[in-house]
Structures are given as structure tokens and as C-alpha cells.
């Protein structure tokens, strides 16, 4: 009998009916490679692993881009051309608030994914919303900082150091903004489509993205703000 042309779900049901204990597919010993695990010659890994791993590769390449901006800042840090030094434009209080907001936002994001794991739509949405609001607070503080600097005449054109500063911090800010848009669409998708397989995959990727932004911010607040501010 041929089952060609049946939908994949029927194919799976057929397999389970014909071979409920997977005797024909089971690994022969505990150490044997397992189908779907992506090991050896057992065929491709499951979609969930491939999606997460692919996004991990993207994130690492994104971090390489950030490292170029970090390198530019490190090289230009003393190129003030008579303009302000970093020590003069750091405001520790605002920096502490920004750091706290972003860290708590990362925490809320993770709690949201805990809710996703148990398929609780309400708490997923609540924590995603908290994540977004904290991220928005971070962005507003950063915009306030940029506007205040611009009002004092400290724009990216002023010196090489300021160019690198606005480039690096601004790039991170753009990432947070784009992440916020992504978060909004994820909330809509969770609401409309529910926890379908691909929606959960997207939530995994979003979590990775948001945590990676926090990791980059650790580098920024240490290297760009705190170290130059040491008296």
C-alpha cells in the first residue's frame, strides 16, 4: 500500500499506528545517535533547533558589527578636537536608570518565555508588554540624553570621539527600537494565532535578540561610560 501524497500529519499518525513503540526506529543503545537530533547520519535536526541555531549565528554576526563600532570608539576615544571629553558628558544617574530598565526588561522577557513554555497566553502577553514598556523607557532616556547633548552643541560632527560615541550608542538604540517593533508584532501574533509551532520559534528568536541587546549594553556602559568617567 502506498501512502504517497498524504499530509505529513497523517503520515505521522500512520507511523505511530503501525509501529507504536518505534521498534523500527529506536536507537539500538543509549549512546546511539537519535533521529532528529542532527547527529551523525540520522538526518536533519528538528526545526526548533535549526531556527534557534540559525538565529544564534545571526546574533553573533550582529555582535561582530558591534565590535567594529567598539573598536572605532576605542581608537577615537581621545580624538576630542577641543570638544568635550567623555568624562564631561557622562551622567551616572541616567546611566544607572538605563541599565536598570534594560536589565529588568531582559528579566521580564525571560519570564514571558517561561509563560510561553507552559502555554499561558495571558501571562505571556503581560510580560511581553512589560518588556516593551521597559525597553521604551530605556529608549526615551537615551533620546533625552542625545537631545541634551545636541542642545549643548555636542553633535556627531563635533569630534571624532563624538562620532564614534553616537555611532555605537545610536546603533544599540536602533536595535532596541527595532526589537520593540518586533515585540509588538509578536504580541499581535500570539494573540491572533496562538502558540503555534512557528510562533513559539519566533518567540525563542525574539528572546535571544533581546538578551543579546542587554549583553551589548553591558559592554557599552562599562567601556563607553563608566571607564572614562573614573576621576
Amino acid at each position: 500500500m502506498s501512502y504517497k501524497g498524504l499530509p505529513a500529519s497523517l503520515e505521522a499518525i500512520r507511523r505511530v499506528r503501525e509501529d507504536p513503540h518505534r521498534l523500527g526506529h529506536r536507537a539500538h543503545a543509549p549512546g546511539e545517535p537519535i533521529e532528529g537530533a542532527g547527529h551523525g547520519t540520522t538526518g536533519p535536526a528538528s526545526k526548533r533547533i535549526i531556527v534557534g541555531y540559525g538565529f544564534w549565528i545571526f546574533l553573533l554576526s550582529d555582535i561582530v558589527i558591534f565590535s567594529c563600532f567598539f573598536a572605532a570608539f576605542a581608537v577615537q576615544r581621545n580624538a576630542t578636537a577641543g570638544g568635550p571629553t567623555m568624562a564631561e558628558i557622562v551622567e551616572i544617574d541616567r546611566l544607572a536608570w538605563q541599565t536598570a530598565l534594560l536589565l529588568l526588561s531582559s528579566y521580564a522577557c525571560m519570564l514571558g518565555f517561561a509563560a510561553t513554555q507552559v502555554r499561558n497566553r495571558l501571562w505571556t502577553q503581560v510580560f511581553l508588554a512589560i518588556t516593551g514598556l521597559l525597553g521604551l523607557g530605556f529608549l526615551l532616556l537615551e533620546m533625552q540624553e542625545f537631545i541634551e547633548l545636541a542642545e549643548r552643541g555636542f553633535t556627531p560632527q563635533r569630534s571624532g570621539m563624538l562620532t564614534a560615541f553616537f555611532g555605537l550608542v545610536g546603533l544599540h538604540g536602533v536595535h532596541v527600537g527595532v526589537g520593540g517593533l518586533w515585540l509588538g508584532t509578536m504580541m499581535a501574533q500570539v494573540q491572533v494565532k496562538g502558540f503555534r509551532r512557528e510562533i513559539v520559534h519566533r518567540l525563542i528568536c525574539f528572546n535571544l535578540f533581546w538578551h543579546a541587546l542587554d549583553i551589548v549594553w553591558i559592554g557599552i556602559f562599562t567601556i563607553v561610560y563608566l571607564i572614562p568617567s573614573i576621576p
Binding site: 529506536r26 536507537a27 543509549p30 549512546g31 545517535p33 537519535i34 532528529g36 537530533a37 542532527g38 547527529h39 535536526a45 526548533r48 533547533i49 535549526i50 531556527v51 534557534g52 541555531y53 538565529f55 544564534w56 518565555f113 525563542i204 528572546n207 535571544l208 538578551h211
Partner: peptide
Amino acid sequence: LEQTEDHAPGD
């Protein structure tokens, strides 16, 4: 059969 399966980051 979960023992030796791979896992993506964040998962």
C-alpha cells in the same frame, strides 16, 4: 529519547 538531542541557544 531526549538524552543526546541538540539544543538551540535560549532553549
